[in-house]
Simulated assay, not measured.
Amino acid sequence: MTYTYNITGMTCNGCKASVEKNLTALDRVTDVAVNLEKGEAEITMSSHISTQDLQKALPEKYQITEKKERNVFESSNAMSMPAESKESKLQQLKPLLLIIFYIVSASVLLHYKNWSWSAFMLDFMGLFCIVFSFFKMLDLKGFPESFSMYDPLAKRVPIYGKIYPFLETALGLMFLMRFQIELALIITLVILGITTIGVTKTLLDKKAIRCACLGTVLKLPMTEATLIENAIMIVMAVLMLIF
Score class of each variant (00 low, 15 high):
residue 26 L to W: 06
residue 165 P to I: 11
residue 62 Y to V: 02
residue 124 F to N: 00
residue 134 F to N: 01
residue 137 M to Y: 13
residue 156 R to S: 15
residue 149 M to Q: 15
residue 219 K to P: 00
residue 188 T to D: 02
residue 65 T to S: 13
residue 205 D to S: 14
residue 166 F to V: 06
residue 104 V to D: 04
residue 38 K to F: 04
residue 174 M to I: 06
residue 63 Q to L: 08
residue 222 M to P: 09
residue 79 M to N: 12
residue 7 I to A: 04
residue 153 L to M: 13
residue 54 L to Q: 03
residue 15 C to I: 02
residue 183 L to W: 15
residue 48 H to S: 14
residue 188 T to K: 01
residue 205 D to A: 15
residue 107 S to P: 05
residue 60 E to P: 00
residue 105 S to V: 14
residue 92 Q to S: 04
residue 233 M to D: 00
residue 70 R to S: 09
residue 215 G to C: 07
residue 119 A to I: 03
residue 162 K to W: 02
residue 194 I to Y: 07
residue 109 L to C: 11
residue 29 V to E: 03
residue 213 C to A: 07
residue 123 D to I: 02
residue 55 Q to G: 02
residue 201 K to P: 00
residue 227 L to V: 00
residue 3 Y to P: 01
residue 123 D to K: 03
residue 203 L to I: 13
residue 198 G to N: 06
residue 111 H to V: 14
residue 182 E to H: 12
residue 168 E to W: 05
residue 108 V to W: 07
residue 155 K to L: 09
residue 89 K to L: 10
residue 15 C to G: 01
residue 189 L to Q: 01
residue 223 T to Q: 01
residue 229 E to Q: 11
residue 217 V to H: 08
residue 32 V to L: 09
residue 163 I to N: 05
residue 51 T to I: 07
residue 84 E to V: 13
residue 231 A to C: 05
residue 18 S to I: 12
residue 136 K to D: 03
residue 3 Y to I: 08
residue 143 F to N: 08
residue 135 F to V: 10
residue 148 S to Y: 05
residue 113 K to S: 06
residue 50 S to E: 07
